[in-house]
Every structure is written in structure tokens, then in C-alpha cells.
Nucleic acid binder design. Sequence first.
DNA 1: TTCATAAATGTATATTTATTCTTTTGGATT
DNA 2: AATCCAAAAGAATAAATATACATTTATGAA
Lengths: 158, 158
Amino acid sequence: MKIKNSRLDAIRLILSTQDISSQEELLNELAKEGFKLTQATLSRDLHQLRVVKTVRTPGQYKYELPRNSQYRTNDSESRPLTTQQEANGFLSIKFSGNIAVIRTKPSYAGTLAYHIDNCDFPEIIGTIAGDDTVMLIIAEDTTRGTVLRVLRSVIPNI
Amino acid sequence: MKIKNSRLDAIRLILSTQDISSQEELLNELAKEGFKLTQATLSRDLHQLRVVKTVRTPGQYKYELPRNSQYRTNDSESRPLTTQQEANGFLSIKFSGNIAVIRTKPSYAGTLAYHIDNCDFPEIIGTIAGDDTVMLIIAEDTTRGTVLRVLRSVIPNI
DNA sequence: TTCATAAATGTATATTTATTCTTTTGGATT
DNA sequence: AATCCAAAAGAATAAATATACATTTATGAA
């Protein structure tokens, strides 16, 4: 179903760009995006995405996507895992302030950073790569959602 | 307190050797080991250990310890700090904004970053290493003191 | 199309987990 | 030992989450 898949995508987007501490809260965020659903359905969605509720600091919870299913679209037949997709080594992306941290499989970071650099995205000021980590410095006034969107051309499986 | 600490150890042992799907079930296992406690206390214990409830297969849950569960509140002196202390090459740490910069002896940075990565601290969203420098991106709303505290498990001599 | 079947969802509720409030316990200090 | 304080724990309950059941909606085969 189409609605469900785009909703799952929305959930992934939200969970990787902001701190969500309850299903109720996530439900509100989804409502802002125009998704109308009940807690029961959300519970099922989170279950399917294998989202876990973690403890950030004592008394403070955060829903997190599992490391390797982070940002993978689940309609795998509509998007077969192409060479490009498998080749980029992308694992996850997280944000803090104006920095994004991308984790990759070992040794993939340099190549991925190279490709991102080549795109000359105005939203990304610069990149630096280690062995399995790429850091992106994000331009001022650029939202995380925008960063994710522009990165899609380099990381389809984001 | 002695009882509590040994109980936390027992929980760690149980969770890493068998599949536990609810607090109720864990409570029973603990009872077999002679630990008498209520669900409320267990909930607090799991909270402190940062245990998460994951989905194994649809409908089947499992409580899991964080990958590196040497999370300590204040009993860091109970751990022997000999081996790593000499080996990690740590020299200094400085902060700017949400970035921490660690200086190490030449060639130690990669290994140190690797160990920090493996801990999956929620407070540190990513690291990147050169030859004698590690940069850490710190999660939003995390204080420098907290960063120092969690790093103690990797860098006892911090 | 029409029927059959599966997937998705809502409602209501069961189940599970977190927390408030209170009491107890364990150390430290005098 | 007596006192104080903080950590720990229980009981009860609130809050959060999962699920059984019923209904609707999509999907596919004939």
C-alpha cells in the first residue's frame, strides 16, 4: 500500500532528525505531515521498522531506528538493490547542530565523501572522511530534511 | 549497595545468555538465582543498564544490553585501569561548540576512535580520526561533563 | 467485473512498563 | 550506639504500548 510506505518513510525521517520520546509525540509529528493514524497503527509500524525505545539520559527516552535498517525503503522490489546502492556502503546518518555524521561500511567513507563533494550541493559546505565515517558541515539555514533530500541523489538508499 | 550491584551483574549475565521477552520473565529468572525484587525495581535496573526491548521476529521481543555495557554511574574505581590506560595514547581533550578534539600520541587516534565508536554512546554521534587527533561530534543537549564521564570507560586516564 | 483472499486499520482492551509516593535499609559521622 | 542522609525498594497506580477482534480496503485470479 502506498500510504503506508510513505508513512514509514516519514517515520524514518522524523526519527533520524529529531528526538521522539513516545508514540504519542511521534503521532503528533506525523499529523503535522498530514498522516492520520492511531496509536495502534503506529505501534505496528514501529514494530515493523524494529524501532527501539532507548534511554538517553535517566528519565529521558528516545525512539531509535536500528543501525542497519536505518533509512532503507522496504519496497525492495520497486527499488532493486543496484550496484550503486550496494556500493556506497551507507549505514546511517545522524545530526548534531550543523554537522551530519554518516556511518559507512569500513573503507567506504572516502569514496562516499568524494561523491558528495562532487555534487557541490550548496546545502553542504564541506565534508571530511575517515575510514567508516563521513562528516558533513551543513550550510546555515538548511534543514536536516533538506540535507536528506539532496543526499538522495548520491545515496539512494538513504 | 552490594545486593543491587550483584543483581545488575546477574541481569547482564542473563540477558547475554538467554532470550528474555518481558520484565516478568526476567523477574522469574532472577528469582531462580535467589534475587527477590519487584517489577518496579527491575524496571529501574533495566533503565540504569540502558537495556532496550528489541523486535527479533515479528511478535517476538528480546531485551538487549547496549553493545558495550560498561556503563557506570560512579563505581569506575572498581575496574582495573591498567591495560588500556597505558595503551590508549590519550594526551588531551578540548571542546568547541558541539565538537571535542582529542589529541593522542602519534598513530593512536584510529584505535581510540574505534573503541569510542564501539561503545555507541548516545552522547557521541560520531568520531573521525587522523593520525594523532580524534574529533567527536557531541549530541545536542549533552554537556561536556557528561562526555568526559562516559569517555572514562574508554579513557580511564582522561 | 466479481469473488476470494490478504493487508491495513480502528476500536477497545489487555498487557507491559514507568513512576509517584512511602517505607525501609545501609552507610557514614559524631 | 544513636543520628542523619541518601540510596534502594515495595505497593499501588499511571502511563505507555501491544494485541484481539471486527471492519474496511486493496490485490489478484478467473
